[in-house]
């Protein structure tokens, strides 16, 4: 098991290194070069050279590459081209916003998905199953930003009970204000997530309920509740955890568009603004950050999986 985890960690680090490398060369492969693109065609040769020197682009490629790697390891992400702000500072302000949205999204999502999935599976073919299945289909079919707009419309514009623009930092404005501003974006990203997890819970539980050991448990006279929560759920949860973990990506992606709906300066907003401004250092930093989060997430899911599923044996133990 240790060997397996070590291998997965190494693999993850390798992918992150690969992403960093591709981002590095990708930036330099932009047709015409990033500086030309940023300054426009009419910029003087002098201005271009000055900017290149400023960005360190006049150095030999291998020197730039080594410097970029050292910067990354020391979390020195450079400065924004438009504001001159340290990118690490911008990140420090953006990350909690996105994470807050994601947190609410995951809590709301699991809060909806697990009970509905269980009800749906245990009452298969009944009206409640039907309603839940249709609802899940609808949830899957609505982009997070459309859900966000609908929520903003209903709770913000028509009922006027919740603010629909901006964010309130937890430390400064307190938990109530923070929650009021993060609730709608959170629900927006949580609904598609809930739909995916609910479908998985339902199908996984259905499969387990059909298993022979469930029949045995029933024959032994184990009560219905114990059977469901102790025998069935424990086994059914394994694939659910995998999907729930991997699909956190869905929540993060949803957050990119939802941040725009609710005017929150999170990671997504940072990325979109950077791309529109041709602010390459910020663009590459955000892309690298997101990719690292994804790799880390997949790694965690893999590792949790090994603990959850006793049937999994890895090479070193089986022999």
């Amino acid at each position: 098991m240790k060997k397996y985890i070590a291998k997965r960690v190494l693999n993850a680090l390798f992918v992150v290194w690969l992403v960093a490398t591709v981002v590095f060369f990708g930036l330099r492969a932009i047709p015409g070069g990033p500086v030309r693109t940023m300054l426009g065609a009419e910029a003087t040769e002098e201005a271009v050279n000055r900017m290149r020197a400023e960005l360190g682009l006049d150095q030999p490629l291998y020197v730039q590459y080594v410097e970029w790697m050292i910067d990354l390891v020391t979390f020195d992400l450079g400065q924004s081209l438009t504001s001159g702000e340290q990118i690490s500072v911008m990140m420090a302000s953006a990350v909690p916003r996105t994470l807050s949205i994601a947190l609410i999204g995951v809590v709301v999502g699991l809060g909806i998905a697990l009970p509905t999935g269980i009800i749906s599976a245990t009452r298969k073919g009944q009206r409640s199953d039907y309603v839940a299945t249709v609802a899940a289909f609808l949830g899957l079919s609505m982009p997070a930003f459309f859900i966000g707009i609908l929520l903003a419309l209903v709770f913000g514009v028509w009922w006027g009970v919740l603010p629909i623009v901006g964010y309130a930092p937890l430390q400064e404005d307190g938990i109530v204000e923070w929650f009021r501003r993060i609730l709608l974006p959170g629900i927006s990203v949580g609904v598609p997530y809930a739909a995916v997890v609910m479908r998985m819970t339902r199908s996984s539980l259905l499969e387990v309920l059909d298993a022979e050991y469930m029949r045995t448990a029933k024959a032994k006279g184990v009560g219905r509740t114990t059977r469901l929560y102790k025998h069935a759920m424990q086994n059914a949860l394994i694939p659910v955890v995998t999907v729930a973990g991997i699909q956190i990506a869905l929540v993060l992606v949803g957050s990119v568009t939802v941040e725009l709906v609710f005017g929150i300066q999170g990671i997504g907003r940072l990325l979109v603004d950077a791309i529109l401004d041709r602010n390459y250092p910020v663009t590459q930093a955000v892309i690298l950050l997101v990719a690292s989060i994804m790799v880390f997430m997949n790694l965690s899911v893999d590792i949790i999986y090994t603990f959850l599923d006793p049937r999994i044996r890895y090479g070193d133990e089986a022999s």
Partner: peptide, 21 residues
């Protein structure tokens, strides 16, 4: 493919838009 899997598709698409300019 593993490498590409590290990117949520919208993020990758956005990055490519930045690259394609």
């Amino acid at each position: 493919v593993d490498f590409q899997w590290a990117f949520p598709s919208i993020i990758l698409a956005a990055g490519l838009i930045a690259f394609l300019g």
